[in-house]
């Protein structure tokens, strides 16, 4: 059975200006040891999906419907008490800004020991030893000195490693990583990616890597789910999504990345901009920006399985790509 099953998840924000449907009908499954890349631009609902999975959506936001079945238990139905026992122990989250997870006025050892003791019945000395090992595991040298430091004494990359070490303390089954390398330099990002890759392989934990950067996850994730306006619009195995995207939005996203394109050539661009969540277009949400849109798109398509393991939410998908796959 899959570790995580998300069914028709909807998280809405009840603001003064109206209801913002940040996540509206998201479904996916995740197996043990699998890495899922959740990709989208700002406002696509990718982070809110992540926050919903770990039960950290703040008012005015709320999970209004759907199921989050984690290891057999529906967390939406079970509510906050269930989340409390899981959060930090079996599901952990890594945030974009490590300063958000680390308390600036506490030493690293205090924070890590606290996390260990919250879920494990061990002595302080043992908790400290676990903290030390967690730091070693994420590649921090001189862990004993590092444990006695404050967060501001670390560099950005180092802080993110500490945040990852804290997430790993209880060897969770699932880690949700929300753009953890976006604020980091390229060389540091590569270091973090290589650590995460190694840790996933070693511990067999499942990972949801949320990012706006398709290129980052293309080398990391087993599967990709692309989000637009609160919905998953395409899902499939990483290599096949990148090489043969079905949805015009995915295709546009891939084509607008400059790297590897012909020098100085105009980039293919998606016209317009992401719609406001308060004022979504009728039918397919990508319709006003889509080169393939016509009247048929006025009715919203469902996320349909177009080939084994390939799902897309589109009236006019790039099926020709699919046929090529079948022939080859």
């Amino acid at each position: 059975m899959s570790l995580l099953q998300v069914r028709d998840l909807a998280t809405h924000f009840f603001t003064r200006d109206g209801v913002a449907k940040a996540v509206d009908g998201v479904s996916f499954t995740l197996d043990r040891g699998e890495i899922l890349g959740l990709v989208g631009e700002s406002g696509s609902g990718k982070s809110v999906t992540g926050f919903s999975l770990i039960g950290l959506v703040d008012p005015p936001g709320r999970v209004v419907s759907g199921k989050i079945v984690f290891d057999g238990t529906d967390l939406v139905a079970a509510g906050e008490p269930a989340w409390r026992t899981l959060r930090g122990k079996r599901i952990a989250m890594i945030f974009q800004d490590p300063m958000m997870t680390l308390n600036p006025v506490l030493r690293i050892d205090t924070q890590m020991v606290e996390t260990v003791l919250a879920h494990a019945d061990v002595s302080r000395a043992e908790a400290l030893e676990r903290a030390r090992q967690a730091l070693v595991r994420v590649g921090i040298s001189a862990p004993d000195d590092r444990l006695k430091s404050y967060p501001h004494q670390f560099s950005g990359g180092m802080r993110q490693r500490v945040a990852i070490a804290i997430a790993l303390l209880h060897e969770p089954d699932l880690i949700i990583a929300d753009e953890p390398t976006t604020a980091l330099d390229v060389t540091i990002q590569a270091q973090i990616l290589s650590e995460v890759q190694r840790l996933c392989a070693e511990t067999g934990m499942a990972l949801i890597w949320i990012t706006h950067d398709l290129a980052v996850v293309s080398g990391l994730a087993d599967r990709l789910a692309v989000m637009y306006a609160g919905r998953i619009i395409e899902e499939g195995e990483t290599a096949r999504v990148i090489e043969r995207p079905l949805h015009p939005y995915t295709k546009g996203l891939i084509e607008s990345v400059p790297h590897g394109k012909k020098h100085r050539e105009m980039l293919a661009q998606i016209k317009g901009m992401t719609p406001s969540l308060l004022n979504l277009p009728q039918g397919c949400k990508f319709r006003p920006r889509c080169p393939r849109a016509d009247d048929a798109c006025l009715e919203e398509p469902a996320l349909a399985e177009l080939a084994p393991g390939r799902r897309a939410r589109c009236v006019h998908p790039h099926v020709e790509a699919l046929q090529e796959t079948l022939v080859s």
Partner: peptide, 24 residues
């Protein structure tokens, strides 16, 4: 060389990030 090596690209086979050691 290290910078060019570390640019994430659309290489879909699992890329092994090599990473230059150390911090700036």
């Amino acid at each position: 060389q290290a910078l060019v090596e570390e640019i994430p690209t659309f290489e879909t086979k699992k890329k092994v990030y090599g990473a230059i050691k150390g911090e700036i």
